[in-house]
Simulated scan of single mutants.
Amino acid sequence: MSRLEQRFADLKAEGRAALVTFVTAGDPGYEASLAILKGLPEAGADVIELGMPFTDPMADGVAIQLATLRALEAGQNLAKTLQMVREFRTGNQTTPIVLMGYYNPIHRFGVERFVADAKDAGVDGLIIVDLPPEHDEELATPAQAAGIDFIRLTTPTTDDARLPRVLQRSSGFVYYVSVAGVTGAGSATHEHVEQAIARLRRHTELPISVGFGIRTPEQAAAIARLADGVVVGSALVDKIAQAKDAGQAVDDVLSLCSALAKGVRNARA
């Protein structure tokens, strides 16, 4: 059983949803980003999505675009992102880490080298937003052969004809993007999310995590009553942008993570 499968199985036994947190690797700098990464599990994150900075993050809103720019300006690259995971694993062997981003940096790095290095570093899953299932042979197939889960995005516009194709080779969990648009967009209604999750459950037995537009403990709790996982990204990234220095960025991200975790944990109490 992979770390992702184990984590979702454990949380299902506990009767609660997972808090899935997103931060961009290298934002606001390597050391502060590593401190955030290492602190997230203790602050209540159950699964961590770690963004791989890329110069053209077309699916992301302003907050994560700016985070990517800060990381790149600080010298972050794919090799350093994998090194962050290695350093994280020296103290944590249980929290799943999912790398999220775009195919271009992986293609330039070399797929075979990337898959081997990611597995060796302790990466558990990949979310590659610009690689549809028609291109599985590019990365999904070799990644899964190495034991790395390949997590698919589904959206409100993924209809019943398309959904089976998207989910066919998915593993780890399904990430439901609850609103059409870029990251940081407005949140969906409770009724919409409830209906979307019911539809997804007819097509897959994988855990379903819901993201986009979740910013507060109250919003996180509302989604946690419906889904297997609650994804929060832009709200955490905004704390870094608003901080006066790297130390405050670390503290503020972890403080918000703790508040979100309490919301998720109390949702079904």
Rank of each mutant, 00 (worst) to 15 (best):
A45N: 08
V182T: 14
D56E: 05
D10Y: 11
T95I: 04
K119S: 07
A259F: 01
E194N: 08
V174C: 04
S258I: 11
E112H: 05
S209K: 02
I36G: 10
A196T: 12
Y176S: 05
D159C: 00
A196L: 01
S33V: 09
A71L: 08
L167E: 06
R113G: 06
E31S: 14
D149N: 11
Q93L: 12
F8S: 11
V250T: 05
L126T: 02
D159V: 07
K239M: 12
D10S: 15
Q65C: 06
A59H: 07
I148V: 08
V115W: 00
G211C: 10
M58W: 12
F114M: 06
P28A: 13
T216H: 04
L260F: 07
P41M: 01
A185C: 09
V85K: 00
Q6P: 07
M100T: 10
T216M: 08
P41I: 10
E134N: 11
E49Y: 00
R169Y: 11
D60W: 01
K262R: 14
M52W: 00
V123Q: 01
I151D: 02
T21I: 06
T157P: 11
S258N: 12
D10T: 13
G184A: 08
A269F: 11
R225Q: 13
T21M: 02
A196D: 04
R16C: 04
T204E: 02
G263E: 11
I240K: 09
A13P: 01
A79H: 10
Q195W: 06
L254N: 07
A35H: 04
L206G: 04
P217S: 07
N77L: 04
A143I: 01
Q93H: 13
Q65I: 11
K38V: 14
T157C: 08
A220L: 04
V182A: 14
T81P: 07
R268M: 12
D251V: 08
V47T: 07
A185N: 04
R86Y: 06
L256G: 08
G44M: 00
R165S: 14
V129T: 14
L4F: 02
K239D: 10
G26N: 12
Q76A: 10
K262P: 09
D159Y: 02
G101T: 10
D46R: 03
L256M: 06
E137H: 14
P217R: 01
R165G: 14
T183S: 11
P41D: 13
